[in-house]
Simulated scan of single mutants.
Amino acid sequence: MAIIENWLPPSRENWNLLCTVWQYFPLVTAIQWLVDWYPMGKTSTESRFNIPGKIGWATMESVGFMTLLYIMFTLPKELGIKELPWWNWAMAGCFVIHYLYRALISPLFLNPSMSPIHPIPWLGAFAFQVFNSISIAGWIAGYGPSTADDWAGNHWAMKIGLVVWALGLLGNMFHDDVLREIRRAADRKQREEAKQSGKPLDGVHKVYLIPERGLFRHVLFAHYLCEWVEWAGFWMVGGWNCHPARAFLLNEVSTMYPRALQGKRWYVKKFGKEMVGGRKAIIPGLI
């Protein structure tokens, strides 16, 4: 049963239209080059409309993998496909595993705290997830390769792509945890100080430091770099003609790159050029 007729799951015509429009998303991100206002994360601002960080992140990110799973289980039936090939499910699994970690496990169970999110970036991220998941799900649920023969001749590239994806995911998790440890250490210190003073702990105040471990020795946003590697591997699995995976990677780069440059300016303003040193924003030695 369709949730939205011809959109969830999408008809081929609507899917083609959405994929065409989605390739122009980098034009939307141009505004990030013009303004530094980005009210979430370390650049969060005070607003009565703010959404609590953990809830905001979980709700705006989880819609993607839920939409993808819904289409994976409904579209093939509408197209008369009895069974999708293993590689289709492998790509779906890569997507779902990433977002189970990013949308649920990380914010709700691993992060000690998260800054509030303004509704505007929340809506933008929610829309990103909807467009992206429909684009990718349509391709792997029937509008792309739908038989084992469609995947023939490219298995080595797909296997290498899976390895690249896994390395990117592990790198993303590792560098996320480096950032979490800064907050965990602050949490432990503030709780110990409250215990020694005999005063109740009135919340844990956020502490920002320049991370030092792993690729953070060379760049300020190593977790972004690892996510780009991850989705480059995902594109390799789908093949170079997998335009939804290509659009996903390029759209992530187009929105995360200016955000990283903005973040670098924030680090320089807060800690000074000498403390930031020669660290680049995302790619060691380049940008």
Rank of each mutant, 00 (worst) to 15 (best):
L249M: 04
H243K: 13
R191Q: 13
I182C: 03
M236V: 04
W231I: 05
I182S: 03
R188T: 11
H243M: 15
H155P: 01
W165T: 11
H175Y: 06
F248R: 04
C226P: 00
L250D: 00
H155M: 14
A157W: 12
G171E: 03
N172R: 03
A222H: 04
P244W: 01
H218N: 11
C226K: 00
E227A: 05
D177C: 07
W156I: 14
A166T: 13
S197A: 13
G233F: 01
A247G: 02
N154E: 11
F174R: 12
G198A: 08
R191I: 05
G238I: 02
M173W: 04
C226Q: 07
L170N: 02
G233T: 06
H218C: 08
E192C: 00
H223R: 05
D176H: 04
F221S: 11
E192H: 11
H243Q: 14
L209K: 15
G238W: 00
G168M: 05
W165P: 09
P244N: 08
A185M: 05
A157D: 10
L250R: 00
G171Y: 00
F216C: 05
L249H: 03
L215M: 14
G168D: 07
A157Y: 08
K199D: 02
L167Y: 01
V164Y: 01
R184A: 07
A166Y: 01
G198F: 06
S197G: 11
P211C: 09
L169K: 02
E212S: 12
W235C: 07
G233D: 01
Y224H: 12
W156N: 12
W240H: 08
F174K: 11
A166L: 12
H175E: 08
I182L: 07
N154G: 12
L169M: 15
A222I: 03
E227R: 05
W240Y: 12
K206W: 09
D187K: 14
F221P: 00
G161T: 10
L167V: 15
A194M: 05
W156G: 12
V237E: 02
G198E: 08
G171R: 02
A186M: 04
Y224E: 03
M236P: 01
A222W: 00
I210T: 09
H155I: 13
K189I: 07
N241W: 12
W165R: 07
D202W: 00
G238V: 04
Q190K: 08
Q196A: 15
N251C: 10
L249N: 04
D177F: 13
K195A: 14
N241G: 10
E181R: 14
L162F: 11
G238R: 01
G161W: 06
F234I: 06
D202M: 09
L201H: 09
D187S: 14
R213H: 13
E193F: 00
N154R: 15
D187Q: 15
P200A: 04
E181K: 15
A185E: 14
V164D: 01
A186C: 03
R180A: 02
